[in-house]
Structures are given as structure tokens and as C-alpha cells.
Design a protein around this nucleic acid. Structure first.
Lengths: 184, 184
DNA sequence: GTCTATAATACGATAGAC
DNA sequence: GTCTATCGTATTATAGAC
């Protein structure tokens, strides 16, 4: 296991979540990760884009795991999904609104200008939607609706997180959880 | 009326919508707006942040107007709001997925790092939520619920737009419209 | 109002020594 | 694996001429 390389990736995950892609410089990544300054292009010969692509993929897997774990805690999706939003609200507040929506900024920055990173974000979003969709299928939702709701839940999480971080108030995430209880 | 100054602002609106804040340089703004190179700090003595702050405010007003106009076309919010999402989907597709979520990227880039721009985005989001909330109040929704749904609708618009731009497919926006019909 | 010139700094990336 | 040094190019911003 290459722990230095790992450290660079996880620092990148944190910085792009808080600041986005363009605001996060390689110098800052090196400095905060404590990695040796000469090692970046040794570990990531593709440069910044290769590094960020890996960071997005790692974040994607982490969120999939968190989603699966959170949803497994309740049998009914109508309980499990709103409670996942509440745990997310807790996480956002605990980070002083510096975390939440770990790839959203990059997704928008890259959507029209960087096909490689756009693809990485698209894959992440689709993976997250699938976890929700599967939970709904397992409890008997019709396939078409399960797919649609999988999308909607991720969209609501993204949107409510943006509003919560912007207001520095988790009200939007908590209110969204309430409305999802009514919808599911 | 200062049309040169206006041109700079509207070019800035378009660029931050497509690319975000940090990816949009002053040089690019000047070049694409056709404004004279020496005039930027004459019109915007506060520099980039002052300019972007005005761009966000202008975008905010434009969206308020579009929302009010769109919602006024149908008496029932359960018709009006989903149809607004459909018109938004059309707009996103017509722009080849370069438009949509006009301040989302900036909101996230600025949330933790630029209080001035964060405040501008927060004000915009609150203004948009109020338009939805008022439409719901007018048709008899309970005040607490109207407020909550005003937030949720904006969150869904933000989230579904992100997913649509990321996938280059307006399916998420159209599906969200369908689910909002069921919810409202 | 608009221009040029430039300061001061940061960026991503590469080369070559060790 | 890690280093330093550096290239080339962006960035925001300012000073001063016209």
C-alpha cells in the first residue's frame, strides 16, 4: 500500500469538496497532504486531471458505501432515506458547512469544459442513484418509478446541500427529509 | 444607460454559469464582451468580486422574472411548477448543456471561501424560493408547508439541473417534473 | 474613458540532478 | 522516490499616459 499516494488523493478529495476544481492548486494539495514536493508527477503522471479523476472515483465509492450502510439500517426506504438526509445534515453542520456535495462543484465546473472529469462525475452520480433505486426495488417499487425516484433523491440531496451550505443552516436538508417522508 | 458596462456584466453572467468563478478570468470576460481592455477597473473599482457580485444579482433578478412569468401561466401550482421545469429542460438542451444552474458553481466555490459572493448567492436562492412560496400561498397552501416546498422546488431544480448537465440529457429535469406533479 | 505597460503572484508542467 | 530549478503561461491588479 502506498500511503503517500493515498494521502495526496484524500487531501484532494477534501479540497475539491470545499473549494472546487480550479480553486484547488497542486501546491495546496502538496502542502496540506504533507507529501514531498517532487513526488506528485511521479505518482500522477497525468497531472492534475488524473489526480482529480482518482479523487472523484474514491469519493464516489465512499458515498456508495455510506449510502448502503445508511439505507440498510431501516427496512423501509420511507424511513431509511429521510434518515440518511438527517445524518447528512449532521455531517454538514459538523464540518462548519465546508463539506457536503463532495463533487458538485467539480461536476459543474467540468460539465462543459472537461470531458474526462465530466465522465467521472457522471459515473459517480449514476452509481449513487443506483443504490437508492435498488433499495426501492427491494421493497416492491415499480422499476420505472424506482429509477425516477433514485434520480430525484440524489437531486434533492444535491440541491438541499447547496442551499444548506449557502445559508450555513441545515434547515433545507432537514425540511427535505420531511418532504421525502411524505413522498415515499 | 451604460451599455458597455452592461455588456461586461451579461458576459460575466454567461461565463460563470458555464464555467464557475475561478475558471472565468477577467481577460476572457473582456475579450468576449468586446469591452475595451482599459475599462474594467473604471467600471468595477472593486475588481472581480464586485463584478461577479453584480452579475449574480442580475442573474437573480432575471430568474425571479422568469419564475413569475412561468408560474403566472397556470393557476394551479401543480401545473405551473412542473411546466416550469419542462421549460427549463428545453432551455438547458437548447444551450447544449452549457446553461442551467446559473449561480450553482459560484455558490459552492464561494460557500466556504468568499463571504461576499456567498451572501449574494444566498440572497438569490432566498428570492427564488419566495416566488414559489408565494405561488403556493396564493392557492391555499399552509404557510409552513409553502415555505418548505418553496425550498424543495428550488433544491430539485438545482439538483436535477446538475444531473442533466452532467449526463447531457434532460431526462432528470423531465422526471423531476413528473414527480413534482405527484407531490403538489 | 480608454489605453499600454507592468507589477506581483500563482498556476500546471517538465527537466535533470541525486 | 524525491529534490530543485525553471519554463511558459495564466491570473488579478495598479500606475500613468493620453
Amino acid at each position: 500500500m502506498n500511503t503517500k499516494r493515498d494521502q495526496i488523493i484524500s487531501t484532494t478529495c477534501q479540497l475539491i469538496e470545499t473549494q472546487g476544481y480550479h480553486a484547488t492548486g497542486l501546491n495546496q494539495i502538496l502542502a496540506e497532504s504533507g507529501a514531498p514536493k517532487g513526488s506528485l508527477y511521479y505518482y500522477f503522471p497525468d497531472g492534475k486531471d488524473g489526480l482529480v479523476e482518482e479523487a472523484i472515483a474514491r469519493t464516489s465509492q465512499l458515498i456508495v458505501a455510506r449510502l448502503q450502510e445508511g439505507l440498510a439500517a431501516y427496512e423501509s426506504p420511507a424511513e431509511a432515506i429521510p434518515n440518511f438526509l438527517r445524518s447528512l445534515a449532521h455531517h454538514v453542520q459538523a464540518s462548519s458547512f465546508e463539506s457536503g456535495g463532495p463533487i458538485t462543484a467539480v461536476a459543474l465546473e467540468a460539465a462543459s469544459t472537461n470531458e474526462r472529469l465530466n465522465a467521472a462525475c457522471r459515473d459517480a452520480y449514476q452509481a449513487w442513484q443506483k443504490v437508492i433505486e435498488q433499495k426501492l426495488l427491494d421493497s416492491g417499487y415499480e422499476p420505472v418509478r424506482a429509477r425516477r425516484l433514485g434520480m430525484l433523491v440524489i437531486a434533492i440531496i444535491e440541491g438541499a446541500t447547496i442551499l444548506s451550505r449557502s445559508e450555513r443552516n441545515v434547515g433545507p436538508l432537514l425540511d427535505a427529509a420531511l418532504e421525502l417522508e411524505a413522498l415515499l
